[in-house]
Write a protein that binds this DNA or RNA. Structure first.
Lengths: 318, 318
DNA sequence: TTGTAAGCGTTATCAA
DNA sequence: TTGATAACGCTTACAA
């Protein structure tokens, strides 16, 4: 339409030099009229370099995950990478769908997955994967973990120090075996010689405030003698506080509540939530770093280098 | 390496029929060894159909936006589209950078922008754009708005009904002129004939709980006679509650606080926040719908069809 | 069941 | 300042 070769179009569109201003204007005008837009595929084919990473998040309504995502976004942007986000809603089937798509559309995938390594590998078709919150030992993929054991240790030490012996847990992980947090809880409880076993752990119907309320109701019914609770995460812990409150229990005097996450939400509730704070942004940033290593063919960070260590933040609830 | 043509490789990799199982295995094995992965660009070039939309979010730490994002993700997935997310951190320069990238890498852009239409258009290079929370009248792009006027009307009616006459506002929008919410507030306040003017509006340093606290401190200093406050959003309103509390004011007796957003956070604070609830997921879904229309060359929805209407949720704080 | 040939829309290179 | 030609890596005919 502008009567020039496609090469000249390219020069006009890409703002290269080596083109007559008049020609350029003519080309751009034609482009406007024709509503022409360069194909990103053809471009990508010819200019390498656009890296896209897929991010699979289980639950955008839990403030924990947006913060992890923010870390991923931040680190990705620094590298000039793009991030495609998928919400898996903690559904294994949806996780697989996400991989089916992302393995074709992304150069690497980062995220939370409940599916087995084998299942993941099959859908991945060779695309590098970095698992979030899975200990580096527990997968064959790249991983960034949380030092749950260390966190639980601090948390339980704190409760025991405050005189608690009858401590329950509100679990949030519905998987085959016991999840990492529940295991760590039971280990610590044993180490302190408390008369506490599996029956002191209640599985909440969901990882939310409502789920925590329901779980706490049940725990208080089954173990009314409980004086301290550890929540699987902050949302659940806040739920426990509400349930306790509704029962007329004072916090922390009648029931001490400990969270696990360090959401800013915890500072706003009454009383403020004592919690094991996790640097979520760092988690996300580390994940991107792992992707970079994988892509470069290097060994991913492992052990404590790829760990985020929870830090006990004592507030009023425990 | 497998000694076959690339067409056969294609068949093997894409799981087509018309291939000998042995050959297929051989090819896949070679692919594994060579760590071969099809180029998504070359694929995209030849099979049309992969749609990517860019989503520009101002602040992932405000629970409002992840929920909007969830709506966008949901609607996009339904259409088989992908979503690339960018965090602009409410920074105009970052908004422009986002557009520079996304206009090349996405087929459409959805998001929050403070930049002028002209600035946006220049960076867009013809890529369709849908603005979030900008009235359809106020932009030449597609838009999905919130009926701020209607919301404010409900909110102020509620406060006035409760007997408040000295009502302040904690604004959160730092722009040239007054933002939409502030304008609506002033309009309503005038309509009710209250002796309230600009000096009753304080601009918070940031749209967060801390920002709300700071703003409320100032408002209480300048207008100690205030008995009701409208927050720019829920985060700011919660901050106001904290500031008031710290001053020894009881809520809602000494100071009524009204939020604007309907975050679930509001149900957890003490007292629970009365707020103008917005269906954030719907906002996101509508935006994707607008994109679909734009792409199809149809007129985008306009007027009230592209509006989300706030709903007053009365809880304890006002 | 396999291979050959054409073409997807762009940019780089080099010649005009 | 412009254009011709050759990639880029894949898929879809169609032929063998």
């Amino acid at each position: 339409m502008a009567g020039v070769s496609r090469q000249t179009v390219s020069r006009a569109v890409n703002d290269k030099g080596e083109i007559d201003p008049g020609t350029k204007e003519r080309v751009l005008e034609a482009a406007r009229v024709l509503d022409y837009r360069p194909s990103r595929f053809a471009r990508g084919l010819v200019r390498k370099g656009t890296v896209t990473v897929g991010l699979v998040i289980p639950d955008l309504m839990n403030p924990f995950f947006p913060e992890v995502a923010a870390g991923v976004l931040e680190a990705a942007e620094l590298r000039g990478w793009q991030v495609v986000v998928w919400d898996s809603r903690t559904d294994e089937a949806r996780e697989r769908e996400a991989l089916d798509v992302l393995s074709h559309q992304a150069d690497a995938v980062v995220g939370y997955f409940k599916n087995e390594d084998d299942v993941l590998a099959r859908r991945l078709g060779g695309v590098p994967l970095v698992l979030l919150e899975r200990g580096p030992q527990r997968t064959r993929f790249g991983a960034v973990g949380i030092d749950v054991a260390g966190g639980m240790e601090q948390g339980l030490a704190h409760l025991v120090r405050a005189g608690h012996r009858r401590i329950g847990m509100l679990d949030g992980e519905r998987s085959e075996g016991p999840g990492e947090r529940r295991e760590a809880f039971l280990r610590e409880v044993r180490r302190h010689g408390l008369a506490v076993d599996d029956s002191w752990v209640v599985l909440c119907p969901e990882q939310s405030v409502a789920g925590g309320e329901a779980g706490a109701e049940q725990l208080l019914r089954v173990r009314p003698e409980v004086t301290g609770v550890v929540g699987f995460n902050d949302l659940i812990a806040v739920g426990a506080m509400r349930a306790a409150r509704r029962r007329g229990l004072r916090i922390p005097d009648d029931l001490a509540v400990l969270g696990f996450d360090g959401l800013s939400l915890g500072e706003l509730v009454e009383p403020a939530l004592t919690t094991l704070h996790i640097d979520k942004r760092r988690l996300g940033r580390l994940a991107v770093e792992q992707v970079a290593r994988l892509r470069a063919g290097e060994e991913p960070l492992s052990g404590t280098d790829a760990w985020v260590i929870p830090e006990l933040v004592v507030r009023a609830s425990a």
